[in-house]
Design a protein around this nucleic acid. Structure first.
Lengths: 344, 344
DNA sequence: TGTTAGCACTCTCCCTTTATGAGTGCTAAT
DNA sequence: ATTAGCACTCATAAAGGGAGAGTGCTAACA
């Protein structure tokens, strides 16, 4: 069977209506609201065809139709009109620029909250992936007592630190020398490239302070460089209650448990690093637990280096055009902001 | 009317039973389960008195009784048996020691998750209050381009940073000198005590690099020292669904919205800094929205300096003895862990 | 005088029944 | 090919009708 233009129109109408109201759409509704000059009976015939082709489903015999995931896919690929953020939305997104802080965590946190506030979906934002980030500076700062703080500053302004015990006979100058060596050696490398066995200069140094240097290198490699998972920020988890399909307490609970499963979210979003927005609809998602939802993903960057991923999670009948336009614009703005702060 | 020992026994039984099952407790139930050698009819008379005195309430005529907030208060103050963590609970709490990281954020995050996992209530943990924390070290780290990172390391291992633009003609040595001055000047002060006008040495320095020094001091005072709110970590927000009183989607939603209201949580917990555990029951809470819940608060410290507050939030019929014992023990363990890491 | 058995009464909860209405598919007419 | 008409299906809401838990009151009892 062919997907003629009339079928497409009807499909569009069903998807559009269902996205707006979340109730199965009947033939009469379409005839009245979308005014396409044919009678409900004709629409019924077409809908019956569309059901056979896998685009529509009936929850039960005497209900209207709802779109299948296949229909949403067709909708987002072919039928959906692109949309720009409204003036109000744009204004709210641009508040990212007004953040005073230069701490990436805080910026990302605000991004999550803006995303969920504007869209009323749940937002997930991954902090900068450490594997994508360059080491800029390593510093051993003496703390009183017998401790020093090993600090690593990266190109995205992220700072990782760990405490190290230092022997009595070590002075500040010595710490500085080691800091310099480490910086010189690992500067502009990623954490993934850290391999303490290759640091020849430093190994020479080992002769006099073998144990201490070992401690430092060990802390660097194991406490800092091996944390390859960045943080996850969530926004608007309670938004899911806005949707009638989640009025069921069991479904709502499942959803919220899902949002607490950081590993899953990390796996879902973490592997995505394309420039453009990606839409994953219902059963297209490889995680079974999320096959009731759709996810709209985007990324943010510094310069042209993609740093992290953002996601909007909502019911499969989500307003894709809105989610996409917001996601795109937020991506642009936050990237521009971070680039201004940290580029070069 | 007097609260004789028999009335107390009955009240105890009602509270205990209602905490366990969440259903109104009838006279027969008490006679059977708590075996106090009197008949249901007598218990009914006593319960009627207790109701008059404001300790019990009836949801409707033909239901059993439920405790009022006043009854819970009496219960936690006088009737409740203290309880120690079970071996299993203690073992799970002591995993705090096994954390490899020395980043306070991560430790606190784990504490929130342990608290909520063990108790099955929602946990809220405030990060160290900056007003309680001493400045240990200030450092200007040159980043390539024309930027430096202004880093402040504190006595609780927290690190605050902000970016500063630096003029062309400034070299590393100069940055070091300023770092040393700042450290010398503000060391062992709290952020609250920071007043850039008093830094005489540094103001002298201003003569040659007036604009730059101004930038540094301004960033220090405004971007770092003025952030007096620490972070908030939540655990087990979805736990609320375990309780029948929150099966109602509207109540569940209200609760979750509450948990997203960071300011409120901050105000609720932030002002509390006593050593011992504090229990706030239902209407005792000054925030109307939280008068359906009870909160058990505790603190954690470094040495004998109280740093931050923790809270367990659950229904008013929460298992206070459990919540209190867990809260106490977690407080002890996390304080000991932090003290080992950061003291001196 | 305090305690208890007995009993009528109340109210919720759950089950069943019934009515309503939205929507369909089929058939026959256009 | 399109559409009006109609019988049929199914979910949802409203109404009725026990069953059960629990109470308060009264009168008997130790």
């Amino acid at each position: 069977m062919q997907l003629g233009s009339r079928k497409l129109h009807i499909l569009h109408a069903v998807v559009h209506d269902y996205i707006s109201y979340g109730e199965p759409v009947g033939s009469r509704t379409i005839a009245k609201k979308y005014d396409m000059g044919i009678s409900p009976a004709t629409i019924r015939n077409e809908m019956s065809d569309l059901e056979e082709m896998g685009y529509l489903q009936q929850p039960h015999t005497s209900a209207g139709r709802i779109p299948s995931d296949k229909a949403y896919r067709l909708y987002v690929d072919k039928l959906m009109k692109t949309r720009k953020p409204t003036a109000d939305e744009a204004e709210r997104i641009e508040r990212i620029y007004q953040q005073k802080t230069t701490e990436v965590d805080k910026i990302i946190e605000q991004v999550a909250s803006i995303l969920s506030d504007i869209t009323s979906y749940t937002s997930v934002v991954l902090g900068p992936r450490l594997s994508k980030v360059l080491i800029r500076h390593i510093e051993l700062i003496p703390i009183e007592g017998q401790y020093a703080l090993l600090l690593v500053v990266t190109s995205a302004g992220i700072i990782k630190d760990t405490l190290i015990r230092i022997p009595d006979n070590i002075d500040i100058g010595y710490l500085e020398r080691i800091s310099n060596m480490l910086t010189k050696y690992y500067r502009n490398k990623t954490f993934a490239e850290v391999n303490i066995n290759h640091a020849v200069d430093i190994q020479k140094e080992m002769m006099n302070q073998k144990e201490f240097i070992n401690n430092v290198l060990d802390a660097f490699a194991n406490n800092i460089a091996s944390q390859n998972k960045g943080d996850i920020y969530l926004g608007g988890t309670a938004n899911i209650f806005n949707f009638p399909e989640y009025q069921d307490i069991i479904k709502a609970r499942e959803f919220l448990n899902l949002m607490e499963n950081r590993d899953m979210l990390y796996n879902l979003l973490g592997r995505y690093d394309e420039e453009d927005v990606l839409i994953v609809i219902g059963t297209e998602n490889e995680f079974n637990e999320m096959q009731d939802c759709s996810v709209v993903m985007g990324t943010y960057s510094i310069g042209d280096k993609i740093l992290g991923t953002m996601g909007l999670i909502g019911p499969t009948r989500m307003e894709y055009s809105k989610a996409v336009s917001i996601m795109r614009y937020v991506g642009q703005i936050v990237s521009r902001h971070l680039t201004l702060l940290f580029k070069e």
